[in-house]
Amino acid sequence: MREIKFRGWYGSKIGMMTPTFNGDINKIFAEKDGIYMQFTGLKDRNGVDIYGGDIALDPVKNIKGVICYDSHQARYKFVPLDLYHANAGNGGWTGLELNVNRRLPEVVGNIYENPELLIEEQ
């Protein structure tokens, strides 16, 4: 069974919180105005938990992208930056599947703490 974990971004006032809790999921949602990210159930190639909203590097294609939840296919995907910027907000992401059969990306930051990483390199 997949481990259910969340973290929350509460802006510059509090920052990123990844609370631990013993069965009471309400603790993570106690702060108002949070943006919540769910654990994908996977770890990157360095053993770091992968959450929705993480920015990662794909070692196979040598591209940077964002981990996004595809609501049309009910799964997380690695979305290259050009597609992320073109399709932001539509819920249906074109991207690469995240699974253990394919080499997983390396998490380098997230869209809230590291927005500078969202700039596409020319």
Rank of each mutant, 00 (worst) to 15 (best):
Asp33Lys: 12
His72Asp: 08
Val48Cys: 08
Asn46Thr: 09
Met37Asn: 14
Ile25Leu: 08
Asp54His: 10
Ser71Asp: 13
Val66Pro: 00
Asn46Ala: 10
Leu42Phe: 15
Asp70Arg: 00
Ile35His: 10
Gly65Ile: 08
Pro19Gly: 11
Phe39Gln: 08
Lys32Tyr: 01
Ala30Asn: 11
Gly23Tyr: 05
Gly23Glu: 04
Ala30Phe: 04
Asp24His: 08
Ile50Gly: 01
Thr40Ser: 04
Lys64Ser: 05
Ile28Glu: 01
Lys43Ala: 08
Asp24Val: 03
Asp58Cys: 12
Asn26Thr: 04
Gly34Cys: 05
Gly23Ile: 06
Gly41Asn: 14
His72Pro: 00
Gly52Gln: 14
Thr40Arg: 01
Asn46Asp: 12
Ile28Gln: 01
Lys61His: 10
Tyr69Asn: 05
Phe29Trp: 10
Ile67Thr: 01
Asp49Lys: 05
Thr20Asn: 11
Asp54Arg: 05
Ala30Ile: 12
Ile35Glu: 09
Asp54Gln: 03
Thr20Arg: 11
Thr20Glu: 10
Leu42Tyr: 15
Pro59Trp: 06
Ala56Gln: 02
Ile63Arg: 15
Phe21Asp: 00
Ile55Val: 14
Thr20Ile: 08
Thr40Pro: 00
Asn26Ser: 15
Gln73Val: 08
Ala74Val: 11
Leu42Cys: 02
Leu57Ser: 11
Asp54Val: 08
Glu31Asp: 09
Arg45Cys: 14
Val60Asp: 15
Thr40Asp: 03
Phe29Glu: 05
Ser71Trp: 14
Gln73Pro: 00
Ile25Asp: 04
Asp44Ser: 04
Ile25Ser: 09
Phe39His: 12
Asp54Thr: 09
Asp44Pro: 04
Glu31Pro: 03
Gly23Asp: 08
Asp33Tyr: 11
Ile35Lys: 12
Arg45Ile: 15
Asn26Ala: 10
Ile25Arg: 06
Ile63Gln: 15
Gly52Met: 13
Glu31Leu: 11
Ile28His: 02
Thr40Lys: 03
Gly34Ile: 05
Ala56Cys: 14
Arg45Gly: 12
Ile28Val: 12
Gly47Trp: 07
Lys64Tyr: 01
His72Thr: 07
Gly52Ala: 15
Glu31Asn: 07
Val66Asn: 01
Ala74Leu: 13
Gln73Glu: 13
Pro19Arg: 13
Asn62Ser: 14
Ala30Gly: 06
Asn62Trp: 13
Asn46Trp: 03
Ser71Val: 11
Tyr51Gln: 07
Gly23Val: 04
Lys43Thr: 13
Asp58Tyr: 09
Asp58Ser: 12
Val48Thr: 13
Lys43Phe: 07
Val60Ser: 09
Ile55Arg: 01
Pro19Trp: 06
Gly41Cys: 05
Asp70Trp: 01
Gly34His: 03
Ala74Gly: 03
Ile63Cys: 14
Tyr51Val: 06
Asn46Lys: 11
Leu42Trp: 09
Arg45Val: 15
